[in-house]
């Protein structure tokens, strides 16, 4: 991020990403709000790759300790977020296959 072009590129990317997030989410019905929140919780688990790089490029023991903890936390975010979301959606899957009567 040393030159001005990179800065503006970043702004473009951020703007488009924010818009994408807004549009994709605004169409989700209320009944799926929990899996949606849990799913987005899983998606920010991408922090894991950052933590891996931080630990992988760490040189001092202090950096290594912090990086190590960050990778643990990031990995828990990824697997936990995935399993929770998957379990929730599995139930919707099941309940959705039963044809609704009446209503």
């Amino acid at each position: 991020m040393t030159d001005i072009t990179a800065f503006w590129t970043a702004i473009y990317i951020a703007m488009l990403a924010a818009f994408t997030g807004y549009v994709v989410i605004s169409r989700v019905p209320a009944i799926l709000h929990t899996p949606l929140m849990s799913g987005s919780n899983f998606i920010h688990g991408i922090v894991l790759v950052g933590a891996m790089v931080a630990l992988g490029l760490a040189t001092t023991p202090v950096e290594q300790v912090i990086g190590f903890v960050a990778v643990i936390l990031g990995a828990a975010n990824v697997t936990g977020g995935y399993v929770v979301t998957e379990r929730i959606l599995q139930m919707f899957d099941r309940s959705g296959k039963k044809p609704g009567k009446g209503a």
């Binding site: 920010h44 991408i46 922090v47 790759v49």
Partner: peptide
Amino acid sequence: AMVVAGIIVGAA
């Protein structure tokens, strides 16, 4: 990847 995924989650 972090930037885009993070902002999507932030907006959502």
